[in-house]
Lab assay of single mutants.
Amino acid sequence: MQIFVKTLTGKTITSEVEPSDTIENVKAKIQDKEGIPPDQQRLIFAGKQLEDGRTLSDYNIQKESTLHLVLR
């Protein structure tokens, strides 16, 4: 499924993921596309910071959901 990751600069990254993918996994995909190390990434969805060990389905993230990427 496709999800969108919006950066603070307003850029939107499209990523191909599975509901069973972990947040860590998603951060790795963002690193592949943007070159941002996962340890600098914080992903936010519905006002919550997403934890690395959890999966997209844990957070009820569905296709075409938009996550927000904040850098630390």
Results as ranks from 00 to 15, higher is better:
Arg72Asn: 11
Arg72Ser: 11
Ala46Met: 14
Thr7Asp: 07
Lys29Gly: 06
Lys29Thr: 07
Thr22Trp: 04
Asn60Leu: 06
Thr9Val: 08
Gln62Trp: 07
Asp39Cys: 12
Gln31Met: 13
Lys27Pro: 01
Leu67Val: 08
His68Trp: 15
Leu56Ile: 10
Asn25Lys: 14
Arg54His: 11
Thr14Gln: 08
Glu34Met: 15
Ile61Cys: 00
Asp39Leu: 09
Ile36Met: 05
Pro19Val: 08
Thr66Ala: 04
Asp52Ser: 07
Asp52Ala: 06
Glu18Tyr: 15
Glu24Cys: 08
Glu24Lys: 12
Ile23Pro: 02
Thr14Arg: 10
Glu64Arg: 08
Lys27Thr: 03
Lys11Met: 09
Ile23Tyr: 00
Leu8Gln: 13
Ser20Phe: 11
Thr12Phe: 10
Asp21Trp: 13
Thr66Val: 14
Ile61Leu: 03
Lys27Met: 12
Phe45Gln: 01
Ile36Asn: 03
Gly53Phe: 12
Val26Thr: 02
Asn25Phe: 11
Gly47Cys: 07
Thr9Leu: 11
Gln40Tyr: 09
Asp58Arg: 02
Gly35Leu: 05
Thr7Pro: 04
Thr7Cys: 13
Asp21Leu: 05
Arg42Asp: 10
Thr22Pro: 04
Gln31Trp: 15
Asp58His: 12
Gly10Asn: 05
Leu56Gly: 01
Ala28Arg: 15
Lys63Asp: 14
Lys33Met: 13
Leu67Glu: 00
Pro19Asn: 05
Leu71Glu: 07
Glu24Val: 08
Thr7Val: 09
Ser57Arg: 12
Leu8Thr: 13
Thr9Gln: 12
Pro37Gln: 07
Asp32Glu: 14
Leu43Phe: 05
Glu51Phe: 08
Leu56Cys: 01
Thr22Ser: 07
Asp58Cys: 04
Glu24Pro: 02
Glu51His: 08
Gly53Ala: 10
Glu18Asp: 12
Gly53Leu: 08
Leu71Ala: 08
Ser65Thr: 08
Ser20Gly: 11
Pro37Asn: 07
Lys27Glu: 01
Lys29Asn: 06
Gln2Met: 14
Thr55Arg: 10
Gln49Ala: 11
Val70Arg: 11
Ser20Asp: 11
Ser65Ile: 04
Ser20His: 12
Thr22His: 04
Ile36Glu: 02
Ile3Phe: 02
Pro38Ile: 15
Phe45Thr: 00
Gly53Asn: 12
Lys63Ala: 15
Ile44Arg: 05
Leu43His: 00
Glu16Ser: 11
Ile30Thr: 02
Leu43Ala: 01
Lys48His: 11
Phe45Ala: 02
Gln62Arg: 11
Lys48Ala: 09
Asn25Asp: 12
Ile3Lys: 01
Val26Lys: 00
Asp21His: 05
Arg54Trp: 10
Ile13Pro: 02
Pro37Ile: 05
Ile13Trp: 12
Gln41Pro: 01
Asp21Met: 11
Ser65Arg: 03
Val70Ala: 08
Gln40Ile: 11
His68Met: 13
Lys27Ser: 02
Met1Val: 06
Thr14Tyr: 09
Ser15Arg: 07
Asp21Gln: 05
Ala28Asn: 10
Glu24His: 11
Gly10Ser: 03
Gln31Pro: 03
Arg54Cys: 10
Gln31Asp: 05
Leu67His: 00
Tyr59Arg: 01
Tyr59Gln: 03
Glu16Gly: 05
Ile13Arg: 01
Thr14Met: 12
Gln31Ala: 14
Glu18Trp: 13
Val17Arg: 00
Gln49Asp: 14
Ser15His: 13
Arg72Gly: 09
Glu16Gln: 12
Gly47Val: 02
Lys27Tyr: 06
Leu71Pro: 08
Thr66Asp: 03
Lys33Val: 12
Asn60Phe: 07
Asp58Phe: 14
Tyr59Ser: 02
Leu43Gln: 00
Lys48Asp: 06
Ile3His: 01
Thr22Met: 06
Ala46Tyr: 09
Lys48Met: 13
Asp32Thr: 11
Gly10Phe: 04
Ser57Ile: 08
Val17Gln: 05
Ser57Ala: 14
Asp21Gly: 03
Lys63Glu: 11
Leu43Asp: 00
Leu56Phe: 04
Thr7Gln: 06
Glu51Val: 08
Asp21Cys: 05
Pro37Met: 07
Ile44Trp: 15
Leu43Pro: 00
His68Glu: 10
Ile23Lys: 00
Glu51Gly: 04
Thr7Asn: 05
Ile23Asn: 01
Asn60Gln: 08
Pro38Gly: 09
Pro19Gln: 06
Gln40Pro: 02
Ser65Gln: 08
Ser65Tyr: 08
Ile61Ser: 01
Gln62Ile: 12
Glu64Phe: 14
Asp58Pro: 00
Leu67Phe: 04
Thr66Ser: 05
Leu8Asn: 12
Leu43Cys: 01
Ser15Phe: 15
Lys48Leu: 12
His68Ser: 07
Asn60Arg: 07
Lys33Phe: 08
Met1Gln: 03
Lys33Pro: 04
Gly10Pro: 01
Glu24Ile: 11
Val5Asp: 01
Ser15Met: 15
Ile3Asp: 01
Glu64Asn: 15
Ile61Pro: 01
Ile36Val: 08
Arg72Leu: 14
Tyr59Asn: 01
Pro37Ser: 09
Gly53Tyr: 11
Thr22Ile: 04
Gly47Arg: 05
Val5Ser: 01
Ile30Phe: 03
Ile13Lys: 02
Gly35Tyr: 03
Lys11Ile: 10
Asp21Ser: 08
Val26Pro: 01
Lys27His: 02
Val70Lys: 08
Gly35Ile: 02
Leu69Lys: 00
Arg42Phe: 13
Leu56Arg: 00
Thr66Leu: 10
Asp32Tyr: 10
Ser15Ile: 15
Gly47Glu: 04
Gln40Trp: 11
Leu71Asn: 07
Gln40Asp: 09
Arg54Glu: 04
Gln31Leu: 11
Thr9Pro: 04
Gly35Asp: 05
Asp52Met: 05
Gln2Asp: 05
Ile61Glu: 01
Pro37Gly: 05
Ala46Asp: 12
Asp32His: 11
Leu50Pro: 00
Val26Gly: 00
Val70Asn: 04
Met1Leu: 06
Ala28Gln: 13
Gln40Leu: 11
Glu64Thr: 06
Glu34Lys: 05
Asn25Gly: 09
Gln40Met: 12
Lys6Trp: 06
Val5Arg: 00
Thr14Asp: 04
Thr9His: 12
Pro19Cys: 06
Phe45Tyr: 12
Gln40Phe: 09
Thr55Gln: 07
Leu69Cys: 02
Thr66Gln: 06
Phe45Lys: 02
Leu50Thr: 02
Pro38Cys: 10
Val17His: 13
Thr22Tyr: 08
Leu56Val: 09
Val17Asp: 01
Leu71Gly: 06
Arg42Ile: 15
Arg42Cys: 15
Lys11Val: 09
Pro19Glu: 08
Asp32Val: 12
Val17Ser: 03
Lys33Ile: 14
Lys11Ala: 08
Asp52Lys: 04
Ile23Phe: 02
Lys63Val: 07
Ile23Val: 10
Ile3Val: 06
Asn25Arg: 14
Ala28Val: 11
Glu18Cys: 11
Glu34Gln: 07
Glu34Val: 15
Lys48Glu: 12
Leu67Met: 05
Asp21Lys: 02
Glu16Arg: 10
Leu69Gln: 02
Ile44Thr: 08
Pro38Lys: 15
Ser57Cys: 04
Lys29Asp: 06
Ser15Tyr: 15
Asp52Gln: 04
Lys33Arg: 10
Leu67Ile: 13
Glu51Ile: 09
Lys29Leu: 11
Gln31Lys: 09
Gln49Trp: 14
Asp32Leu: 14
Gly53Glu: 09
Ser15Leu: 15
Leu43Asn: 00
Gln41Ile: 13
Glu64Lys: 08
Thr9Arg: 11
Val5Tyr: 03
Glu24Leu: 14
Lys29Gln: 11
Leu56Met: 05
Arg54Phe: 12
Val26Gln: 01
Thr14Val: 14
Thr12Cys: 12
His68Gly: 04
Gly47Ile: 02
Val17Trp: 05
Val26Ser: 00
Gln49His: 12
Asp32Ala: 14
Ile3Tyr: 00
Ile36Lys: 03
Ile36Gln: 03
Ala28Gly: 09
Ala28Ser: 11
Thr55Ser: 08
Pro37Leu: 07
